[in-house]
Design a protein around this nucleic acid. Structure first.
Lengths: 238, 238
DNA sequence: CCTTCACTAAGTACAGCGTACGTAGTTGCC
DNA sequence: GGCAACTACGTACGCTGTACTTAGTGAAGG
């Protein structure tokens, strides 16, 4: 009988090292690093209990001594990359600080393209996620008249927008990872189909959008612009 | 030899009914409806080729005559629920129209809680998705000086914010669907842990946020407010 | 009309998944 | 030293997507 936990439990609440028994062979950081490495390499779907265990050099079922469910492995991964956020002394310019946070989050997600899929408030309780949130709130200290509830909204909205933006940036790349053809082929096929549909005349505004001179397509600039718009909405001086 | 397609191909580009051979037993709409029903009932993870085939009353492998890959089944599902968008004659007030679009999308996602997970621009080429996008652009006609590129940005950002908002609303509910305990138990465990962490004093602003009077917690009002903020950023009259 | 052949339908099989369970070995505490 | 708690891990089960094979159907061409 292996009396394993079957009760609601946050993984961060269970001690990493128990008092009795042999010294565990790995730390949570080891496991998280292995899983993150696999996900960076082969996508989130490559992260299986068997693969992670193999990367660590242990039996598959031994992993369950550290991670009660696969969900918790995801939680470990999320916390690990949350720790990559650089946290600085707030500058006093909350807009500049929030833009810096957002740009950094975007870079983080480009480094770990599986991260948007794991973005969820249920992972927001991990140590590094809490540190990150506290840092965001610190950056918003200049907004003295804004309630914390609203600040949380602001941070949440900003994170959400960054997540969606990067998810869109990476969508075809991540999709074709498990498909038998390349991203370029996929895009070409879809654009060709779209062109045929628009040519039917059923979507006049879409057609206009496609004939319009797109101007400079600087993804970084578009990102900044969208973010500035969101901040505009919260700026009391506007 | 069953010459199945192994080339990049949008499912909407292949004809639903071939010239020769017996009449197919189902339409794409039948299949989409079955899959949507299963997802509504048991979550997206309950949608397997076997389940959908069983719901249709056919063999598992027969499904592959209609849907070359499971990805395409998702695409069918996305298109089917995209068809549930109500499209009206634009009122001339673009802000009011966009708010109505956003509220409707939120309702749609509450009706189909798996939809946020499928939200991706790669599905934006389906017939109903194109109709929806054209409708959004029509609602933005009053913004005569705005380029279509920017209007696309606006629609994309709005959809993204709605998606993230609803994903957050539903996160614990969808998470506990596959967990052996209830959403309430899960939330209680996490809040208890969070309380313990905040009590350590390591997160002073988080602590302040939790002691602050939260005021009215009307999720609908918060949603509207966040959306209005995003629209503010695009409003030339502000 | 009858042949032809593209198409539909379905079964079998395989590799991979999460994980329940049982067992053996190791270590710290009384 | 003995006991209890813990680690480690192999086996097994039910599930997944889907490649491949075979059989049957029905519209088009001669």
């Amino acid at each position: 009988m292996a009396g394993r936990a079957a009760v609601p439990e946050v993984i961060w609440a269970r001690p990493e090292r128990a008092g009795r028994g042999p010294r565990p062979a790995f730390t949570r950081a080891d496991i998280a690093a292995a899983a993150v490495g696999i996900a960076d390499e082969g996508g989130l779907d490559a992260v299986s209990m068997r693969h992670v265990a193999a990367a660590l050099g242990c039996g598959t079922m031994s992993l369950y001594n550290y991670v009660p469910r696969k969900e918790d492995l995801y939680e470990l991964m999320f916390d690990a990359v949350s720790g990559e956020h650089e946290l600085w002394e707030p500058s006093g310019d909350w807009r500049a600080d929030m833009m810096r946070v957002a740009r950094q989050t975007r870079e983080l997600m480009h480094r770990h393209p599986w991260l948007p899929r794991l973005m969820s408030p249920v992972y927001g309780f991990s140590p590094n996620a809490l540190r990150y949130l506290e840092h965001c709130l610190a950056c918003l200290d200049p907004l003295q008249d804004m309630k914390y509830g609203m600040k949380m909204q602001l941070v949440g909205l900003l994170n959400g927008v960054v997540t969606m933006y990067v998810a869109n940036e990476l969508s075809t790349a991540e999709r074709t990872r498990n498909l038998p053809w390349s991203e370029e082929q996929e895009n070409a096929a879809r654009i060709a189909y779209l062109g045929r549909q628009v040519a039917t005349g059923a979507y006049p505004r879409m057609a206009a959008a496609f004939t319009e001179d797109p101007g400079p397509i600087d993804l970084d600039a578009v990102f900044d612009l969208a973010l500035e718009r969101v901040l505009d909405g919260f700026d009391p001086s506007r």
